[in-house]
Design a protein around this nucleic acid. Structure first.
Lengths: 331, 331
DNA sequence: GGCGGCGCAGCAAACGATTGCGGTACACTC
DNA sequence: GAGTGTACCGCAATCGTTTGCTGCGCCGCC
């Protein structure tokens, strides 16, 4: 039913080896016979069996991508970027979602790792030891998490956060509230440190609330807590929390961008879904994805042209995108 | 480096066949030797090579999923459901995103089709002929599109739409606007027909505007058009358009749920991101995903226990979820 | 005219598992 | 004690490609 290399070879009165070479390693074969082979192969509708090829080559031309939650709007752009880049390079991607369940990460990584040439772990929640163990196992790169010794690409929260705090302070806000994300989140740690530093730098008083899950519902609960804290501005761990806060406060009759200012992080497409539109710190998700793929592929094919990771993680810059959810404090 | 069946066999002084049988087909092998084999295999850290297994079995234990746009919040839950179900059944999923680019669908399908045991095409935009051709090719099921002769699971828009229109009419709306989706979208056709039928049934005047892309930005543009149409209520092709409409109208000082009512479709998580929260027609994305997987696997393993598709597509019901974006018309 | 070399193509051994077909040994029956 | 059955296990082929090595014919050069 399915036409194999041998079939083509028979049709050409040649051996399978020759056909194989003609198709994959031109130059090793007479130009005339090669073109004849190519024609016959096309006519017969021959398509190489990837599995058989993989068996001998040891490569599957597939990479695995593990994310904590596809439904979090930060990830889709990352995933799309990974896909696109991988595709460009002739790879397909195996996707796994751990549902924010840290314990599943190792498991997923193991099973995908056996089917793929390499793995990208995006925003892994697992402990550092586990991750390092994993890194030693196969070819793994980490996105949005700095794992020493392993290739990784991370977000540099400092600049964006600094801009955010400066923006608020300039507007006249003195008390700023940070609505923190999950405790186990490495990003949250980064963002927290960044906001602490920025607040100190710009002389703002910082309150911390949380932790909150990166979900709209959690943001709504955060709004209630925020109410009683007496801050005029809040920076949320991510857009989802920020959106939840906005929705809830608006419901209670507050004017976002006037009575209270809200800043999200991620600058996901959803930050434009609400009114006023959410001021948010832009996180380069697309670059995160493409860079991770490049890093991984360089590692896999490691033809010595591996991008400079030796010094540590690649850092991607963030910046503030100002929209309507921030404004002068009204008292 | 990597331990193979033969290695385990050597260590046990047995043949590879026996080890293979012991591991995959217990009962064909003496209980004592079997447990010995299992122990040794575990100690040696043997893990079967999936590629080799695939070569002989012809199966890859992988299914492909093709969606038009991961970033559309309707899809992540579908994808998650597909993943989860597939995983339960021992399959992993290969994901591809066509960026709403119909021409890429066939291409993606072809390439994934060769690597997977079967394919799920979600909301395909391609022409029916192309799809049918594809269906004949390998094992393919369609989600959210009825392709005659091919197994498919679709959304029955009628009930939800009927509830939506009835809801609006009961509130007192007489002129309803349908903000239509992309012309090539099969869903849009379904939704359009449903809203026409429902409007007729409940005696509402129907206006049609569009087409609009399923994106927030497009929704904002839709709002402008909507303004001049003089309708008090709008039903949008999907939540994204509805959210865009709400954001824009709110910006212009209109009170959503009072001066104008808006209904979305999909009931995506984002419908709760805005205030007021979006009244939306719930589309069972999760069921769509799981059902598609079940259908596909039944087809693949076709051990005669194929779920009833012979009669046509499996239909999933929709229903209205009332939130704050709809209310009594104020004039 | 013989020999080295080169350009092409074929042989056969992998890759790592699954599986039909036997084969052996042991127990059991008559 | 011979014949039959059964329970286990091994042999070897197979899946479709890739690839190192070999072989062959032809050309050119000395």
């Amino acid at each position: 039913m399915t036409v194999t290399l041998a079939d083509v070879a028979d049709a050409c009165n040649l051996s399978a080896s020759t056909v194989s070479r003609a198709l994959s390693d031109p130059g090793k074969v007479n130009a005339a016979t090669r073109s004849r082979i190519e024609r016959v192969a096309r006519e017969m509708g021959y398509v190489p069996n990837r599995v058989a090829r993989s068996l001998v080559s040891g490569r599957t031309d597939t990479i695995g991508l593990i994310v904590p939650d596809i439904a979090n709007p930060f990830f889709p752009p990352v995933i799309k970027a990974v896909q696109a880049r991988a595709r460009d390079k002739g790879y397909t991607v195996l996707l796994a979602d751990t549902d924010e369940h840290a314990a599943d990460e190792l498991d997923r990584a193991r099973s995908l790792g056996k089917q793929a040439d390499g793995l990208i772990l995006a925003s892994p929640r697992t402990s550092i030891e586990t991750l390092r163990r994993l890194g030693g196992n196969g070819t793994v790169v980490f996105a949005n998490r700095d794992v020493e010794g392993a290739p990784s690409v991370v977000i540099d929260e400092a600049e964006g956060m600094s801009q955010a705090v400066e923006h608020l302070v300039r507007l006249g806000h003195r008390r700023i509230c940070y609505l923190s994300g999950p405790k186990r989140s490495w990003s949250n740690k980064q963002r927290h440190e960044a906001v602490v530093a920025a607040s100190a730098a710009f002389g703002a008083e910082l309150l911390e609330l949380g932790p909150f899950e990166p979900q709209i519902q959690a943001g709504m609960r955060a709004a209630d807590v925020l109410q009683s804290a007496g801050a005029t501005a809040a920076i949320a761990y991510d857009d989802l929390i920020a959106l939840g806060v906005m929705a809830r406060l608006t419901e209670q009759g507050m004017q976002i961008g006037r009575e209270v200012s809200v800043i999200g992080i991620d600058d996901s497409p959803m930050s434009q879904a609400a009114y006023p539109m959410l001021t948010s710190i832009h996180v380069p998700g697309v670059e995160l994805g493409t860079t991770a793929v490049d890093l991984l592929l360089a590692r896999i094919q490691d033809d010595a042209d591996a991008p400079e990771t030796d010094g540590g993680a690649i850092r991607l810059e963030t910046r503030l995108v100002i929209r309507g959810s921030t404004g002068l404090p009204v008292t």
